[in-house]
Amino acid sequence: MSEYREKQSLLHGADDLLSRIRVVLVEPSHPGNIGSTARAMKVMGLTRLVLVRPRFFPHLDATALASGAEDLLQQAELHDDLLSAIGDCQRVYGTTARDRHIQWPQLDARQAASEIVAQAMQAPVALLFGRESSGLSNSELDLCQTLIQIPTGDLYHSLNLAQAVQIIAYELQMASRLPVPRQDGLPEQEAQVDDREGFYEQMRAVLLASGFLQAPREEHMMRRLRRLFDRAHPSRNEIDILRGILTEITRWATRASREGR
């Protein structure tokens, strides 16, 4: 009996953990894919579905293909922009089928699942899926710290949106059942997306004013700087320190300009 209770406790703990992982669909165009995604999520214990500017929702096709996961559709969160959908998350993972010119940290679905589950023990995590036709844009991937690719056969690489969700959801379910690694002490909480984005905008403004950022390489350089700071996993306190430094630099530059230095 004790073994049964231990197993049930482990499964309930896994469900608790998975509730901190939100699946975010960016501009899905086919309502049937939304319904199929909800079904793929529910069968693997994921419950938080977030939709950013869906073309058609709610829709009968979504309800029909949810097939038992209609509650996830009813509870789905709708957002007009991606940042509002993930602003309170500490880590964001983006799915992509394409190689990018800037090298983001990249994992396959199984590797990513273990990391996502570990992160979800600390704070909410977002998992982004892009448009059926074009995936996530580079500016949307800028909000991600890690990219996920699903390995496929050599002859055909195309995965349906809901299929991709199903594969990663399965890996998350399996990873959530593994023993939780023990941590000594309380690690400092990583900064949320909102905090990091505020810092990046302030840094961009300071670097533009200084002349360091210039067209046509402005976006390329900012993307590299994002990757640099993302690798450091700064805490909110560290972000506040960095922003304080930028504020003082701006004040100094303003005083120096007034004094004609």
Rank of each mutant, 00 (worst) to 15 (best):
E115H: 14
I116F: 00
I116E: 01
Q122K: 12
A123I: 11
A123P: 11
V125N: 08
L128T: 10
L128P: 03
F129M: 09
G130L: 09
G130S: 06
R131C: 01
E132I: 06
L136E: 05
L136A: 02
S137Y: 07
S137N: 06
N138W: 05
S139H: 11
D142L: 14
C144Q: 02
Q145A: 12
T146N: 07
L147P: 03
I150C: 05
I150H: 11
G153Q: 14
D154S: 15
L155P: 02
Y156K: 10
S158V: 00
L159E: 08
L159N: 11
L161E: 09
Q163G: 06
A164G: 11
A164C: 09
Q166N: 14
Q166Y: 12
I167Y: 03
I167N: 07
I167G: 08
I167D: 04
A169G: 12
Y170C: 11
Y170V: 11
Y170W: 06
E171R: 07
L172G: 01
Q173C: 13
A175S: 11
S176N: 07
S176R: 05
R177Q: 15
P179F: 12
V180E: 06
P181R: 04
P181H: 12
P181E: 02
R182K: 14
Q183C: 13
D184R: 15
D184K: 14
G185W: 10
G185N: 14
G185Y: 10
E190F: 10
Q192F: 03
V193Y: 01
V193A: 10
D194A: 15
R196S: 03
F199L: 07
Y200S: 04
Q202D: 04
Q202I: 05
M203Y: 00
M203N: 05
R204C: 11
R204E: 04
A205H: 15
A209E: 05
G211A: 05
G211L: 00
G211Y: 06
F212V: 05
L213M: 06
L213T: 04
A215R: 12
E219A: 13
H220D: 11
H220Q: 13
H220K: 14
M221W: 03
M221C: 02
M222I: 06
L225E: 01
L225M: 15
R226A: 07
R227Y: 10
F229Q: 01
D230M: 12
R231M: 04
R231N: 10
H233F: 12
P234E: 00
N237C: 07
N237Q: 14
I239P: 00
I241D: 04
I241E: 10
L242W: 03
I245C: 10
E248Q: 12
R251H: 06
A253R: 14
R255V: 15
A256Y: 01
S257F: 11
